Simulated assay, not measured.
Amino acid sequence: MSLSFTSRALAYAALSAGVVLAFFVLREHWAHALGLAPYLLLLACPLMHFFHHGHRRAELAEAPPPSRLSTQVDQPFED
């Protein structure tokens, strides 16, 4: 989907304002943010597990079944 120039400019302005706001909030509350880090790590583990396995199931559904080994025995060459 193509965004118009004004909507793209507004998106960049909002992103820039968010980065500046995050910088100033983290600068003033760095100790509190670091205190949340272990909990964010614990929250990230089940989320990554859930999303990783969801994509893996989709890949397995599209994959062809594994080939079976041939039951035919190779015959020696006859001269």
Rank of each mutant, 00 (worst) to 15 (best):
H53R: 13
Y39H: 11
H32I: 15
P46L: 13
R68Q: 08
P38G: 03
G18Q: 09
V25L: 15
A13L: 04
L10D: 09
P64G: 11
A63S: 11
C45R: 12
Y39M: 13
A11H: 06
L34G: 01
E28S: 09
R8W: 14
V25G: 02
Y39Q: 10
M48H: 05
R8N: 11
H29E: 11
V19M: 14
E62T: 09
D74S: 12
E59S: 12
R56T: 04
F77A: 12
S16T: 12
P76H: 02
L3G: 01
P66D: 08
A13Y: 01
H53P: 00
A9K: 04
V25N: 13
S70G: 01
P64I: 14
F50L: 07
G35P: 00
R57S: 03
A17L: 15
P38F: 10
A44K: 05
A22S: 02
P65E: 15
E62G: 10
R8P: 00
E28K: 15
H32T: 07
H53Q: 14
V20I: 08
S2H: 14
A44Q: 11
S70F: 01
P46K: 09
V20G: 01
S4P: 00
Q75E: 13
F5Q: 09
F51S: 03
H49N: 13
F5W: 08
F51G: 02
T6S: 07
A37L: 09
E62C: 08
H55I: 07
A44M: 07
A58G: 04
E78A: 08
A31D: 14
R8M: 14
A58N: 05
A22T: 05
L3T: 03
F77D: 05
H55G: 07
G54C: 03
F24N: 03
A63R: 10
L43K: 01
M48F: 05
L43A: 06
W30A: 08
S67N: 00
L60H: 11
L15F: 03
A13T: 02
H52P: 01
P64E: 14
L60M: 14
H29D: 08
M48G: 11
L15I: 05
L10S: 14
R8D: 08
E62N: 06
H52D: 06
A37Q: 03
S2A: 15
L41Q: 05
C45L: 15
L21A: 12
A11F: 02
G18D: 02
A22G: 02
G54M: 09
S2M: 13
S4I: 00
L60D: 14
A33Q: 10
H29N: 15
A22N: 07
H55T: 04
P66C: 06
H53L: 07
A37D: 03
L40Y: 01
H53W: 13
